[in-house]
């Protein structure tokens, strides 16, 4: 990428961050991001009203246990739905608003435009869902394990890993939904199909499991899920497979998006 293209990516970032964080379409993103936080506050409220949390969730160990389950909710639902909304609307939303031509009339390579928009959307998703995850984690640990425990170095180190998984999740899911939004006009059906695929991932044959984002993310979660139903969902994957796997998958998907965007025409009337 040359200096001009870097400047152009920064230009796209400025516009897209503004749209993503302050625009009309950002409200659902914030609401989705608040879901786990709301669930945490409901748990805290109910527990306080009934005289304290269940025995197995007390102390720092209990906090970890509670958050492991909560993180599955974040990973499999919040992150998924949030990324569907942000990334599928990245180009499709501009077609609906009839404003994509403003970008297409600037002297920017279409692939560079994809890179800039993707980077901005990833930043938005990471800020909202990473922030939401971090807040939930701190609140859970402060309530169940005490404030000093919540702010201790080992606990914060684990938090860093959780947030890292969220950021990688935004990377992988973002690439998938970006490309879906570029290839398909109807977004609901593919979003539901991919959701079903990701949810049933655990029950798929080994070679099919690898064609999913959640497969790689599960391998990066810092603490293993507890025994019971959740443990069935977890699939041990080496970090050295998971991390490059997600990055490679993202790169390939972005190449497909770059190829696709070169062939996109502005014909709003036919949309």
């Amino acid at each position: 990428m040359n200096a001009l293209q870097v400047a152009q990516v920064r230009g796209v970032l400025r516009l897209e961050l503004r749209k993503g964080l302050l625009g009309r379409r950002s409200l659902p993103v914030y609401l989705i991001g608040l879901l786990p936080l709301g669930a945490t506050f409901v748990f805290v409220l109910v527990s306080t009203l009934v005289g304290g949390p269940p025995q197995e969730f007390r102390g720092a160990g209990g906090a970890h246990l509670f958050f492991i389950a909560q993180f599955q909710f974040i990973l499999r639902f919040v992150l998924y739905v949030g990324c569907v909304w942000i990334f599928m609307n990245l180009f499709r939303g501009e077609v609906i608003d009839r404003s994509l031509h403003y970008y297409f009339l600037t002297p920017i390579r279409r692939e560079v435009l994809v890179a800039g928009k993707y980077l901005a959307a990833w930043s938005t998703a990471s800020a909202v869902f990473g922030g939401s995850t971090a807040l939930c984690y701190v609140v859970v640990h402060a309530y169940l394990g005490g404030t000093s425990s919540a702010l201790s170095a080992p606990v914060l180190a684990v938090l860093g890993q959780y947030v890292g998984v969220v950021l990688l999740g935004c990377l992988g899911y973002g690439a998938v939904f970006l490309v879906v939004g570029l290839f398909l006009r109807s977004l609901i059906v593919p979003a539901l199909v991919i959701f079903a695929w990701e949810s049933l991932n655990t029950f798929l044959p080994a070679f099919l499991k690898k064609i999913s984002v959640v497969f790689y993310l599960q391998g990066l979660i810092p603490l293993p899920p507890p025994d019971g139903p959740v443990s069935i969902l977890a699939e041990p994957v080496s970090v050295w497979i998971a991390l490059p796997g997600i990055l490679l998958f993202t790169a390939l998907t972005l190449v497909a998006a770059g190829w696709r965007i070169r062939h996109v025409e502005i014909a709003y009337g036919t949309e």
């Binding site: 001009l4 400047a7 152009q8 920064r10 230009g11 796209v12 400025r14 516009l15 503004r18 403003y102 970008y103 600037t106 002297p107 920017i108």
Partner: peptide, 12 residues
Amino acid sequence: LLYGYLRVHGYD
């Protein structure tokens, strides 16, 4: 609008 898209052109 004007400023934002001029930045996408690459102007400082």
